[in-house]
């Protein structure tokens, strides 16, 4: 079996270890990953969201004129359909992906993977499963957080005083279909980030240089996978619609 297929099969096996979540150390590992990838990323996401909201308002006012209704509505539309899931995924990729790949690679290179197996602690359940679950979950929650911060910053910057009509107009793009698109994109991008990190770590063999190589590969493969998936999301509706 080609090595890449073998690694993908291992990832699938790891996802099949869901019953292992009943075990306390696996739950603790999941909690640690959620804290590492989710909770600790909040300040960075807040800064990114605020900067994005302010920059978007400034740019749209500059290009389209100071139409607050249009600016806020368009920004929410863009955030839901593209910006929030994509920027969150890129943030997670640069912040967490290389670290996760390096951890997994170090376990492989140092023989700690075998130590776990000797203790009858399933490495797929203890090492991979928490990471494969935590990153998509963190991605979805951080996307929501980024969206709220960016839109909130834009509202505060663009509106001089609270205006109910503007709020209603701004929320027009928030349909169930758009929310579902945003959620599914963020989950998929998170899953791709997790998969690329774990695959790069699993593929590590040899000595210390393998760890840094795994980190670099995780970021590169993750970036390519996310961009490709985003392009697919954009192209699929056009392909399915009648000519």
């Amino acid at each position: 079996m080609p090595p890449v297929i073998n690694l993908l099969v291992q990832l699938c096996h790891a996802l099949g270890r869901l019953p292992a979540l009943r075990r306390a150390p696996v739950q603790a590992a999941l909690g640690r990953q959620l804290q590492q990838c989710g909770l600790r990323a909040l300040p960075g996401i807040a800064c990114l969201g605020a900067a994005l909201g302010l920059a978007a308002v400034q740019q749209m006012h500059h290009v389209y004129g100071a139409n607050v209704d249009f600016t806020l509505r368009t920004l929410l539309q863009l955030l839901l359909s593209e910006l929030a899931p994509l920027l969150t995924a890129l943030f997670l990729l640069t912040r967490s992906s290389s670290g996760i790949a390096a951890e997994v690679a170090a376990l492989r290179v140092h023989g700690e993977w075998r130590t776990l197996a000797a203790m009858q602690v399933d490495p797929l359940a203890f090492v991979l499963l928490p990471r494969l679950l935590a990153i998509p979950l963190a991605s979805a929650l951080l996307t929501l957080y980024l969206l709220l911060i960016a839109q909130g910053a834009a509202v505060l910057y663009a509106l001089d005083a609270p205006d109910q009509a503007t709020f209603y107009s701004m929320l027009e793009p928030l349909t169930p279909a758009m929310a579902l698109l945003c959620l599914s994109k963020s989950l998929l991008f998170g899953a791709l980030t997790a998969a690329s990190s774990c695959l790069a770590g699993l593929a590590a063999e040899g000595d210390w240089p393998a760890v840094s190589q795994a980190s670099a590969r995780a970021v590169l493969f993750g970036l390519l996978a996310i961009v490709a998936a985003d392009a697919l999301f954009a192209l699929l509706p056009a392909l399915w619609s009648p000519a």
Binding site: A24, P25, G111, T115, L116, V121, F126
Partner: peptide, 21 residues
């Protein structure tokens, strides 16, 4: 060696026992 470098000392101590219930 013998310990998992990514885990704390407490987690290294208790991992096998707690994993097995």
């Amino acid at each position: 060696g013998g310990l998992l470098s990514t885990l704390s000392v407490a987690d290294n101590l208790t991992l096998a026992a707690s994993y097995h219930g």
